[in-house]
Design a protein around this nucleic acid. Sequence first.
DNA 1: TTATATTATCGTTTATTTACGATAACCAAT
DNA 2: ATTGGTTATCGTAAATAAACGATAATATAA
Lengths: 105, 105
Amino acid sequence: MAISKKDEFTSEEIWLSDVAKALSHPARIRILKILNEMNSCMVGSIVDKLPLAQATVSQHLKELKKVGLIEGEIDGPKICYCLHSKNLIKAKSALDKLFTKFGCC
Amino acid sequence: MAISKKDEFTSEEIWLSDVAKALSHPARIRILKILNEMNSCMVGSIVDKLPLAQATVSQHLKELKKVGLIEGEIDGPKICYCLHSKNLIKAKSALDKLFTKFGCC
DNA sequence: TTATATTATCGTTTATTTACGATAACCAAT
DNA sequence: ATTGGTTATCGTAAATAAACGATAATATAA
């Protein structure tokens, strides 16, 4: 993309855009919903519920984890992914704050 | 990206992910803030406030317009961009609805 | 109608994203 | 130690995104 100009913006703007990027694929939105609805949250179950290969799902999970919207803890040979409540609240607040700036919302 | 699997998801999920994608660059978040603060909203003024070339800003505006977060109306030789309140409300609601699903928010 | 100002689009380059198969790494049993 | 189940990573291909200069398109003013 040529040279990125991202560092010309505030860290708040960058963080918010990173959160938005994490939400910018329907599979990742679906994954968040799945994690919310399931008690069991191992990767295999998520893969079964998505029309994507295991490697692809793993990549999506990695991106959600990167911005902190989910976390994974080791559970024997499996890995249990869950929503990261604290960061979800933080993200929601930041989005609220942005939209509230706009008179309309 | 190989063949896209986006159409395997609901239209709600796709729309939400499109809105998120529109917000997934700090320049576009900044543009929304600028449009909210300025009464005059011609492209030139926006370009002056960003560390990006005119062509690049025009591209970002196009993407924001594509998902309906802003709209542009012709004003003589200029074009006046403004926030699209109705769609911003819709976007905020959809995001709220998503986060509210999660017990934490 | 010719110039001036404003914005969009074109063409191009580089980077990132999406998607997958194949393989590696990991852990718990046997 | 070896096997079996689980997940991450590697390598790769194709698509999209980001950025810009140059140019086209548009509309007003002269």
